[in-house]
Structures are given as C-alpha cells and as structure tokens.
Amino acid sequence: MSVIKLSEKNFDEVINNDKVLVDFYADWCGPCKMQSPIVDNIADEHPEIKVGKLNIDDEMDIAEKYGIVSIPTLLVFKNGQPVGKFVGLTRKEEILGAIE
C-alpha cells in the first residue's frame, strides 16, 4: 500500500486503525532520509499496516502533541493510541516486531 501523507486534516482518522506506523521526519535531516526507504518498504510489503509520514516542518502542532523532540521518530498506533516509539534510525525488523 502507498504511504499516506499526514496532516492535521487526516491524522486522527488514519491513526484510528488497527495497525498504524507514523514516521515523523524533516527534509533536512540526514537520518530521516535513510529511514524513509525502510518505511516505504514496510508499506509495500505489509498492506495490513497503515503507514503515514508527517513532515514536522508543516505539522509542528502534531509533533508537539506527541512529545517529539528528535527525528526521525516512529510511532506505532493501535486504534488511535500510541503503543510503540522508536527514536533515531531504526531497522525494519525492529519496527515490524513492535507492530505485529
């Protein structure tokens, strides 16, 4: 499945699903650029997971709401609730381990 571009408009709707992964990133952050293809790959291989990316430059309020102070940060949601958090470049297996 394709990656969903998240914004204030669709954020709450997207995270309100069974398995959700959100990548908080910025274009100017080196490790975010390396995290991005890993997140894309998860979206491709796991259609059952809703995968979204949130550009913190555009959506700082959401980042603040979830206490993001370091990027990349990945949050795992289950029915709207954050259930897992990874700070810094993280391997695919580790991310999937927290979602499954």
Binding site: A26, G30, P31, C32, A63, V69, T73, G88
Partner: peptide, 17 residues
C-alpha cells in the same frame, strides 16, 4: 531521556528547541 530531551545531533533536533 534519549529522545526525550537528550540528543546526539544538533543539526537534526535543534529545531525543537
């Protein structure tokens, strides 16, 4: 407190401060 105010990259995370 890593990821909660402790950072190893000023250029990545400075933005939040």
């Amino acid at each position: 407190f890593e990821g909660k105010g402790i950072s190893y990259c000023a250029i990545c995370d400075g933005f939040f401060y």
